[in-house]
Design a protein around this nucleic acid. Structure first.
Lengths: 186, 186
DNA sequence: TTGCGCGGAGAACGATCGTTCTCTACGATA
DNA sequence: TATCGTAGAGAACGATCGTTCTCCGCGCAA
């Protein structure tokens, strides 16, 4: 294992999958080692502690989330469609068999009280999402107060779908978003 | 400690506060013992395991939540006001200094993947809330599809407020709910 | 070929946790 | 008063976890 970046990436990817599927505290570093195929010694050379690995995993999740959002928006031609594409993206995500809610919300609930670094990383991600929505709302020429309302719908859909175990919340939130859009831009 | 029910109540209440503040897995049974003033032996006579205690705590939280919702609704005179009182209730809750998000969402994120009993208890609570909203929507004479939309707003407000650390999401969600209500009943 | 340094496998260590067990004190009953 | 059962305090136990350390083998320079 000579390639530094490849080893790091394998560790982050394996940890991400395990943390998301079972929760962070339920996964030992030895399980990460086994899944990544990287020795413990090497993992601790790449990350000073499990906490640092958790932060790296959250950053990795942010990239995946951003890429998914952007990819969904690409298929849209208008600002309104780009906003609604968020909920189509959620719908596709909720239908994946390994969907288990938003990793940021889950990790925040699990560790946010004890690790301000985790809480900060989650807050950064959610703030970035709100800014993304605000940008789309601005492009649409709708009043700015619409943006947090749409973001709240997206957040609520994620926790509702995770707990219910069904993807219904995506199209319910999308319908609500359409109503809010209709009322905001006339 | 002769009174069975009082000891049980003290354990549940102490565990609830600790679990909510620090997360379930971060709180050892010895911390519960110290906070409740009930010996470990007695705790394990009342609850077969920590898992059982967790379930009891979730049930206790359900009672608190239901009572809070009902109390907020009492001050309302119309069905529309009763619906909006949900968001006033959330606003008051978000402003409490020890607010740390929805205990059900947090616990589900932490343990839902490993304990189907926990996942079930959380799902039961969320389903009951959705049924409550559906009842109010029915009283209002609005189309039933409005109910899950309002419930999603409430869920989203809870996670948004918890992560952001501000109570803003409550009135943002309330404003969205008003728009949805206006559009649904004309 | 020989010595050296790096990396992997996994044992080891100290801490913590859920759960049980031991010991002691006390209150009620005959 | 003597005895028995119960309850509390906390030690003990086995498991697990994060982190470090030891040992061994392999590739490379002189």
């Amino acid at each position: 294992m000579i390639d530094e970046t490849s080893a790091r990436e394998r560790v982050v990817r394996a940890a991400d999958e395990l943390f998301y599927a079972r929760g962070v505290q339920a996964v030992g570093m030895d399980a990460v080692r086994a899944a990544a195929g990287v020795s413990l010694k090497r993992i601790y050379a790449l990350f000073a502690s499990k906490d640092e690995l958790i932060i790296a995993v959250l950053r990795h999740r942010t990239e995946i989330w951003d890429a998914g959002l952007a990819s969904a928006a690409e298929r849209a031609t208008t600002a309104r469609e780009r906003i609604l594409s968020i909920f189509d993206f959620l719908d596709a995500w909720f239908r994946q068999p390994d969907f288990r809610g938003c990793a940021f919300i889950n990790t925040h609930g699990e560790l946010g009280a004890n690790s301000s670094a985790v809480a900060d990383a989650v807050r950064v991600q959610k703030t970035a999402f709100q800014a993304y929505v605000a940008r789309l709302v601005d492009e649409l020429g709708a009043p700015p107060r619409l943006a947090p309302q749409l973001a709240i719908l997206a957040e609520g859909a994620q926790t509702t779908a995770a707990i219910a175990g069904t993807p219904d919340a995506a199209h319910q939130a999308r319908a609500a978003a359409e109503t809010l859009l209709d009322a905001a831009v006339r």
